[in-house]
């Protein structure tokens, strides 16, 4: 029991705080910010899995959020499908699309992967705008029904229930991500990220696991999109631009890719800070941009590294910088090898 608590204390504390918030405030504005924070966290967790664990980048993730949102909107408004079922169908479609584009693109690396996923995102956006007969183009889709369980309807006018639903799902996804990180599949992804040839030499199928990670991140994004569509009840293509993809990536990067919790802190900062900065009116984006840059410069490991960075600062200020003792790691690994002369 004690071991269980110690292992899960961070998650439990965070879960209790987030689930408890609506019982301390009934301010609908705060609760709506928190609702969007929950859906953003769902997307961020998938992206953290992809970028942090598997070491892949996606600059097209807005497309998967869009697929979830549009999938849910179209299936419910046009075909009268049950919203929960529509959410599942949309997520399956997003997974299949991610699988199809993942097989060729995950073989790409670095800038090429970034460009390929960016191109994919733009293609989906163009389709959302141009295939007017289905998507209604730039007008967007209105009248998306709310989610409901029996008589309990999740709407903006019932913010407490909405909050518990969205944060319940987001926390479940957080728990799932934390579990994955500490599992056979999670370690395989980390291995592929750190040294791909070594991981494959140990029996890890690189393509399979990278494509699978891409599909999971697409599913998380799609579910976030579906929840957003049912929450706001109106969607338009303008929400799924490259700018949104970049914001998603920014969030998980400033949070920190080294840990799942990076997705949490990054999301909180990305969603709540701009609200706080609204007092600066026109300068909001400028101040926000500067803060993001400052975080990246002073915390290259992201917000999750704040604790250890402060610890280091303290030892340095206290004149007890022990970094000198940490240099057991030789800079050049090849230098010491003994070599015969000969073939040169």
């Amino acid at each position: 029991m004690v071991a269980f608590l110690r292992r899960h204390v961070a998650f439990l504390a965070f879960a209790v705080v987030m689930m408890g918030l609506p019982f301390f405030t009934s301010n609908t504005y705060y609760l709506s910010v928190l609702a969007f924070t929950a859906t953003r966290l769902m997307t961020s967790l998938g992206l953290n899995l992809l970028m942090g664990q598997a070491g892949q980048i996606s600059l097209g993730h807005a497309a998967f959020v869009g697929m979830g949102a549009y999938g849910s909107a179209i299936l419910t408004t046009r075909f009268g499908m049950n919203p929960w079922l529509a959410m599942v169908v949309a997520a399956v479609v997003a997974a299949v699309v991610a699988g199809i584009i993942g097989i060729p693109t995950t073989k790409l690396k670095g800038h090429y992967l970034a460009m390929a996923t960016l191109g994919f995102g733009e293609i989906v956006l163009i389709l959302l705008i141009q295939v007017k007969s289905i998507t209604k183009g730039t007008d967007g889709i209105t009248g998306i029904p709310s989610l409901a369980i029996g008589n309990l309807v999740f709407t903006q006018y019932n913010p407490r229930a909405m909050h518990l639903l969205l944060w319940g799902v987001a926390l479940l996804m957080l728990r799932m991500s934390l579990n994955l990180a500490d599992s056979r599949v999670g370690r395989a992804l980390k291995g592929l990220h750190r040294a791909e040839v070594a991981a494959t030499s140990l029996g890890v199928d690189a393509t399979f696991h990278k494509v699978q990670a891409f599909m999971i991140s697409a599913v998380f994004a799609s579910i976030a999109g579906s929840f957003t569509a049912h929450y706001v009840q109106y969607i338009s293509p303008g929400s799924f631009t490259l700018t949104f993809s970049v914001l998603l990536v920014t969030g998980v990067v400033i949070g920190g890719l080294g840990s799942i919790w990076g997705a949490v802190w990054g999301t909180l900062v990305m969603m709540i800070l701009p609200e706080y900065l609204k007092q600066y009116e026109d300068a909001t984006n400028l101040v926000f941009g500067i803060l993001v840059i400052v975080i990246m410069i002073f915390l290259p490991g992201g917000l999750v590294s704040l604790g250890s960075a402060l610890g280091k600062l303290r030892t340095r200020v206290g004149g007890r910088d022990r970094r000198a003792a940490d240099t057991s790691d030789p800079g050049s690994l090849e230098g010491n090898a003994r070599r015969p002369g000969g073939a040169a």
Binding site: R184, V185, K190, G191, V197, L202, G203, V204
Partner: peptide, 24 residues
């Protein structure tokens, strides 16, 4: 080609990948 930021034990655990089956 060790996985630097993983523990020594976790490095070896990756070696059990194909001998275990638990999936996603």
């Amino acid at each position: 080609k060790v996985f630097d930021d993983l523990s020594v034990l976790d490095n070896v655990k990756v070696g059990r990948h194909a001998k275990s089956t638990a999936g996603l």
